[in-house]
Simulated scan of single mutants.
Amino acid sequence: MLRISFIAKALTFALLIGLSFRTSAYQKDILFSSEIPLDLEIVTNFKLIKGSKSDTVFFPTFIKFKNEEGKQDSVPVNLRGRGNSRRAQCFFTPLWLKIPKGASKNTPFEGNRSLKLVLPCQEGESFNHLIVKEYMAYKLYEQVSPYFFQTRLINLTLTDRQNKKGKTYALTAFVLEDVDNVAGYHEAKTKDSGLILPQLINDTLALKQDFFAFMIGNTDWSNTTQHNVKMLIKEDEKYIPVAYDFDYSGFVNAPYAIPYDYLPIKKVTERFYRGICRNETLTQLVKSDFLQRESQILATLEKYISLLPSAEFESSRNYLMDFFSILKSETSFQAQIANACQKYGLIEN
């Protein structure tokens, strides 16, 4: 009991320190300091963007917005498509935005030279709602880890000018900060692509991420290969996982999302735990931490109740409630998480 008590106190202290640092660090960014959706306008040619497979070819345009005085303003930006699955299956491919050095000064984008713009897969309210749910997943992740990507909802007026007339769409979108900014806040460095052995990753943060992925029904990720996960590294410390891209989760439940064929599930709304086996003491502590945050997590969800139809919001809430029901049932917890983990020889007595 003494050992468990000591670890519990240490974990609690570490979480408090992490959350405190997170708050003070992230207050500096103008773009992400507000949760009020930002109104933006972009004119581009989606046919050219989708047709380009190069990671180095960008297409110049402008982002238009209203400044603090309510007057129309703009910043130059270079765009390219990103995301293999959405690029193949969606009309609107997610975009990478590169803002020239110095161009964002005294604008909402100051301090952000690189951003990801997440767009709905297709036109229509149902696809806009999926974007809202993916945005909500990012906000939920903020409640369980001090290491996360900041996001901001966008009311986007997008004109696709494939011809002289063009076509304009009203889309719900959100921007995601660059991983270099996340690393900078935490005085860390980013890890280039490549395999990372599980024992080199911070076990507490990895386990919290594993639980989070199970909570939102996400199986489309891998710490080892850095698939939909970025790794940060601080001097003399283990790697820190930062998760992103939640559109294939059961919580979002996009119509194009299907599980990998090697997984024992038929649809993404079925939960399947993909975490590495950790020692029982740490597993129980992380379980307790999530249970203690249940009201906080659900309260975070409630903040966005007005952004979804009532039936869809209740479905999202019930999906999270099912997760907490699993944690509260020792039989379900053992069957679906504790005994379902991926064995890698990391368990300590």
Rank of each mutant, 00 (worst) to 15 (best):
M1R: 15
I4V: 14
I7K: 13
L16D: 14
G18Q: 01
S20L: 15
S20Y: 15
Y26W: 12
K28N: 11
K28Q: 14
K28G: 12
D29A: 14
I30C: 11
I30W: 06
S33W: 06
S33N: 14
L38W: 05
D39S: 13
L40K: 01
L40W: 04
F46L: 15
G51R: 08
K53Q: 15
T56L: 12
V57P: 07
P60H: 03
K64R: 12
K66T: 09
N67M: 03
E68H: 12
E69C: 11
V75N: 03
R80S: 07
G81F: 01
Q89H: 14
C90S: 10
F92P: 08
P94F: 01
L95T: 00
W96A: 09
L97Y: 10
I99N: 05
I99F: 01
I99A: 02
P100W: 06
N106F: 11
T107V: 02
P108Y: 01
E110V: 00
E110S: 00
S114K: 12
K116C: 04
L119A: 06
Q122V: 10
Q122H: 11
E123C: 05
E123Y: 09
F127W: 10
N128F: 09
L130T: 06
I131Y: 04
K133M: 00
Y135L: 04
Y138Q: 01
K139F: 00
Y141E: 04
E142Q: 15
Q143N: 14
S145L: 06
S145D: 07
P146Q: 07
Q150T: 05
R152G: 06
L153N: 05
L153F: 06
I154C: 06
L158F: 01
T159L: 02
R161F: 10
K165C: 10
L171V: 10
T172P: 00
A173F: 03
V175T: 07
E177S: 01
Y185P: 01
A188E: 10
K189M: 13
K189L: 12
T190H: 07
G194W: 06
G194P: 09
P198G: 15
P198S: 14
Q199I: 13
N202S: 02
L207E: 13
F212R: 08
A213Y: 06
A213H: 04
F214L: 03
G217L: 00
T224R: 02
H227R: 13
H227E: 09
H227L: 09
M231V: 00
I233N: 05
K234G: 08
I240E: 07
I240S: 02
V242T: 11
A243C: 04
D247G: 02
Y248W: 15
S249L: 00
G250M: 00
G250C: 05
V252T: 02
V252D: 03
P255R: 04
P255V: 01
I258H: 14
P259W: 08
Y260P: 02
P264T: 10
I265A: 01
R271F: 03
E280D: 15
T281R: 11
S288R: 15
L291H: 13
L291Y: 09
Q296V: 15
L298H: 06
T300I: 10
L301E: 01
I305T: 12
L308T: 05
L308P: 08
P309A: 03
N318A: 08
F324Y: 06
S325D: 08
S329I: 12
E330K: 11
Q336T: 11
N339M: 08
N339L: 09
N339E: 12
C341S: 04
K343N: 14
L346A: 09
L346C: 05
